[in-house]
Design a protein around this nucleic acid. Structure first.
Lengths: 267, 267
DNA sequence: ATCCGTCATTGATGCATGTCAATGAGAGGC
DNA sequence: GCCTCTCATTGACATGCATCAATGACGGAT
């Protein structure tokens, strides 16, 4: 009990508050949501939150650490679906079938908030702001998935990695962490898998960007030395940098701007 | 007026009823939803339903015909996001930002049902079944988008096209149309664009599959001659054929089974 | 019926990126 | 502190698919 208590915070006191809880919820509404949230103690690297086939019962958000979701095919090969940072919600794909179709695993020591889906459904019928936000959250995830499809179907390896790094950068900025200097929570293999590239390609492009003095890479530590040129490499307009990146959170869509879709490689 | 009336049907009388309206809605609930739906007369091929940048006000379902959604980048290149058949809902990606970020265009003469989003939100707070279904619908779209990401990032051209055809086949079957003999509503260019392939590749693979007597292709008319071998080509388990394909509808997820993710090309 | 524009097909060629192979560098365990 | 295992890097080579180019086939308009 004591052991657990030190990890337990309320939504009201949580530092991710602004990111995770809709700011349009009133204090009392947040309190109601808060009462439904289960906070367990941190789980270790490589421990799963849920696995494909598990009964769907809850949605999850990352409190600290990082999570990847993935599926495993018949041949036993893993396919990375997404990465989640503090304040981001995952497990949304399981609502439709009532069963998890992907697995979720901690990339490092990670604390998770769990919100029982039944309860969330009830609450969203009562709290209009919550319903609005859940719809936006789900819709936002769809938009981002479609953006990723575009990335995967039309962009070069360099563009994919550029976009990926800029996306992470944005997400760290939102969390008031350095957008230019951060640690990749995932392995190169995971990055390649996620972006549809061979590990070797990821590696080569990292070193290429390093040689161009756009990036400084030391293992998982990354420093963006020249954001402007990184944008150029990724074919991303600098002006778009502050929008559209990152996974859904309860607040997703609230701050969202129309997402520019441009910058695709011509064939 | 007379001109319009002949296209107008109620949800209750609509032949897509079972596909489009959640069957768990009671008769009176369907009547309430029905009252919110606007049915306009058919639009012609190449006419848009909405365009990127338009204010988001409604969700749409196809009543007859077919629709594609797409975005256009800065260079003016089009990127196909999805295809929608009768009973399927589109426009979901616009909820989060309040603005359409993609455009939707009729691939042939097409009738559309429109449901104002404000009203849908209101109703979903009142009608529990409707809320449940909307959440499932959105979640289902997310699952499918993730499946597509997997297709785009890991599969060969042949697998992509095989999957694409099998997906269409499933969707036609659901609509009580022939799953083995149908007309592609979209151009080769659109197929290639959607699947991240050059038109020429699509064409070549169609003829290759034809020469193997797996497929019979005559312009847009397609006949699947050997479903079993088509599955083999697509690396899809025959047993999975009846599940997991097609875009969300109001009923999406209701019939949904756990989606097998397998069958990815090994590198 | 004929014309014209869009769409589909087919072949030749090149390139981006996957695959194979081998070495190097950290990180965790005894 | 050393060992081992996993992960990252780098080079050589192979290939699937894009690109370029040209012809053919519809299908809608007049």
């Amino acid at each position: 009990m004591n052991d657990q208590r030190k990890y337990v915070v309320s939504c009201q006191a949580c530092s991710l508050n602004a990111l995770c809880v809709p700011h349009s919820l009133t204090e009392s509404e947040v309190a109601i949501v808060d009462a439904a949230v289960k906070r367990s103690k941190p789980i270790q690297r490589n421990k799963t939150v849920f696995e494909a086939g598990d009964k769907f019962a809850s949605l999850y958000t990352v409190r600290s650490g990082a999570v990847k979701t993935y599926s495993v095919d018949q041949e036993g090969d893993e396919h990375v679906i997404g990465f989640y940072l503090p304040g981001e919600m995952f497990g949304l794909d399981a609502i439709s079938s009532g069963q998890h179709i992907s697995s979720a695993k901690a990339l490092e020591t990670t604390a998770i908030c769990e919100i029982p889906y039944n309860r969330l459904e009830e609450l969203s019928a009562q709290i209009h702001n919550l319903q609005t936000h859940m719809y936006k959250l789900l819709s936002h995830e769809i938009s981002e998935d479609q953006q990723l499809q575009l990335l995967l179907s039309k962009k070069t390896a360099e563009e994919r990695i550029g976009n990926f790094l800029l996306g992470l950068s944005s997400r760290y900025r939102l969390r008031h962490l350095s957008p230019t200097s951060f640690r990749l929570p995932m392995a190169r293999t995971d990055i390649g898998n996620y972006l549809g590239l061979a590990v070797e390609t990821v590696s080569r492009i990292f070193t290429r960007l390093q040689k161009s003095n756009i990036l400084q890479v030391d293992g998982k530590e990354v420093r963006i030395l020249d954001q402007h040129r990184l944008c150029a490499v990724a074919h991303v307009d600098d002006a778009d940098l502050f929008h559209g990146h990152g996974h859904g959170t309860l607040a997703a869509g609230v701050h969202a701007e129309p997402i520019r879709v441009g910058n695709i490689r011509k064939f």
